[in-house]
Nucleic acid binder design. Structure first.
Lengths: 147, 147
DNA sequence: TGTGAAACTGCATCGTC
DNA sequence: GACGATGCAGTTTCACA
């Protein structure tokens, strides 16, 4: 994990569909060398996958909320969570609440209906997202700013 | 936005580095046709980008937390947020808190140090992530399960 | 919009250092 | 670990439906 690996991670975090050739030009290294480094980063699990970022609003989902949840019935609640397409992220947390959910729904009404279904399992505290300042900031400091 | 577009979105959300040829085989359509649909989905903003998913723990970041934050000094707090590499996501929210942050740090100690810096701007309620059940569930119902 | 064919470009692989 | 060369695979483009 040297500076070049960090550059590769930074570039591919920005644009996962960049070609290896284009990367090899940016970092002034041969194409097979970059391919080999990429392969190793994937194998080590530093790169866990590649995802397209989809726009919720363009897909008719206009409401995003974070829901803190408290339940005594973890097993059933997690099964409910797996089966609920509204729940995009599901975390176990410390503190007075034991779960945190990121929920994406069409409207405020569909969020309300979802929360009512949740209340079979426990109680919640909901924080509706008004706007997103930024999301998914890179975990790696850029090798340098020139690329 | 027909069934085929949904299939494309579902596939590319799973693996953003899949080749167009491979996709065109999966959905039984010619490769130029898939290229054209992809181009349109990008242009319309349905696909907002492509990202590599990096493993925080493999990069030495072992602590993740969600922080609810209340400040009266929004402008300065947002500038602080932009400049803080610990803050991965930053949302404006409704309710008694006006921000929600996803924070990724090396250890509990570095999280603590970060929170102390935050307290120049207001007060917080912190929820430490113990484990992740799932993250980034697809926003599109699969066209069908056979792919 | 979708297709098939052809020219072009990028990638996997191998031998070399 | 990285490089250069090469054959194969994927992409772009275009005429046609």
């Amino acid at each position: 994990m040297d500076r070049i690996d960090h550059q590769i991670l930074s570039i591919i975090h920005e644009n996962a569909r960049i070609t290896v050739s284009e990367m090899s030009r940016k970092i002034a290294m041969s194409q097979p060398a970059v391919t080999e480094r990429l392969r190793r980063l994937e194998e080590q699990g530093v790169i866990a996958g590649y995802r397209a970022v989809l726009s919720p609003s363009k897909l008719g989902k206009h409401t995003t909320a974070f829901v803190l949840f408290k339940t005594n019935n973890c097993k059933e609640f997690e099964a409910f969570g797996e089966a609920s397409p509204e729940i995009v992220d599901l975390y176990r947390t410390s503190g007075e609440y034991n779960y945190l959910l990121k929920v994406v729904t069409a409207t405020g009404e569909t969020l309300e209906a979802f929360l009512e279904r949740c209340h079979a399992f426990g109680f919640s505290s909901t924080h509706v997202v008004l706007s997103t300042r930024f999301e998914d900031k890179s975990l790696v400091a850029d090798g340098d700013g020139s690329n």
